[in-house]
């Protein structure tokens, strides 16, 4: 062979050390990746061998997308939760990190209180929130009523889609009868409660911003608000991009709390039927593996496109430090 003997020895050592991953890559990623693409073009019920079905599964997805049911409903639900929870998480994270960066008495305690909820296991957090959100005697509605706000139908009613009629109905009703929040908003609330992860990352990034930038801005007469807008925010933009991407990826992949809050059904009225739950139910309740695989591939393509688009547009608003 052309390869020199010492190099060859390194190669075999490299391959030997990497063998767990080589096997894992093949068995847990490459093969599943390829076979799920194949299955997405089949009818398959996990029991009988898969039967080629052409584009049938994708046509079904297209129809459901058009009708706003099944996949279409799941896509809307997922998009709703992500479009609300990701920007709010980033905003809340930034605000809390800014507050916590001040030199206050008891700062350590404040940080611990904000961070601790993000450590709670998802199952425990979901069980806890199921109890807090209980529409009849839950704490959250009690707190809302104590503040003079109307109690909400958390987890029992889906909010109807915004239409001219629903807006008119809202406007004509007295404020005390407004039922604005539904199951998906409960999910958003849970996500916001676990924002501590973000806060810690923002705080660490804020610690890395050179103090000289703030001093220069102060010399130029910038107040606290303008220093935050023109120094802190641009310096944090790479971290914000990271959080945006991670938030979207995590949002699409969220499963456990959706499953637990809706008791594994996506109910009430399909309002908690997100893409991951829809896929899980299609595969393991309805045994429609071909259709489920097609959903997985659509999800993968959407996610890849969103990530790619975010990185493409990021150069316009993300500021990378070239020197420190």
């Amino acid at each position: 062979m052309l390869v020199a003997p010492p190099l060859n020895r390194e190669t075999s050592a490299g391959l030997a050390f990497a063998s767990p991953w080589l096997l894992g890559l093949l068995v847990l990623f490459a093969w599943p990746f390829a076979i799920s693409l194949y299955w997405s073009f089949c009818h398959f019920d996990l029991i009988n061998p898969p039967e080629p079905a052409g584009w049938a599964n994708y046509q079904r997805i297209g129809r459901e997308l058009w009708a706003g049911q099944g996949f279409g409903l799941a896509l809307i639900n997922t998009a709703y939760t992500i479009l609300i929870s990701v920007p709010l998480s980033i905003l809340l994270g930034l605000v809390l990190a800014t507050w916590l960066s001040y030199d206050l008495p008891g700062r350590g305690l404040f940080r611990a209180i904000i961070f601790l909820p993000s450590m709670v296991p998802v199952v425990a957090a979901s069980v806890l929130w199921l109890w807090l959100l209980n529409p009849s005697d839950g704490w959250l509605n009690a707190a809302l009523e104590w503040c003079g706000l109307p109690a909400q139908n958390w987890l029992t009613q889906s909010r109807s889609a915004l239409s001219p009629e629903s807006v008119q109905r809202l406007v004509s009703e007295p404020l005390a009868n407004w039922k604005l929040a539904g199951s998906k908003d409960a999910l958003v609330l849970m996500t916001l409660w676990g924002v501590g992860n973000y806060v810690v990352i923002y705080l660490a990034a804020m610690g890395d911003i050179p103090r000289s930038l703030y001093e220069a801005a102060a010399l130029d007469g910038a107040g606290a608000w303008r220093r935050w807008c023109h120094v802190t925010l641009p310096m944090l933009s790479p971290v914000i991009l990271f959080q945006l991407v991670v938030g979207i990826i995590r949002g699409v992949q969220t499963f456990t709390n959706v499953y637990l809050l809706s008791e594994g059904t996506g109910q009430p009225a399909g309002s908690l039927l997100t893409l991951s739950l829809q896929l899980f139910l299609a595969a393991f309740e309805d045994l429609q593996v071909g259709y489920a695989s097609a959903i997985a591939w659509c999800l993968f393509v959407i996610l890849a496109a969103a990530t790619w688009a975010l990185f493409r547009t990021s150069s316009a608003w993300v500021h990378y430090r070239t020197h420190t």
């Binding site: 599943p32 799920s36 299955w39 992949q253 896929l279 993968f300 996610l303 890849a304 990530t307």
Partner: peptide
């Protein structure tokens, strides 16, 4: 970058 949903069923 690969979502778990893609590999779940084959696994």
């Amino acid at each position: 970058l690969l979502p778990w949903q893609v590999t779940m069923i084959p696994r």
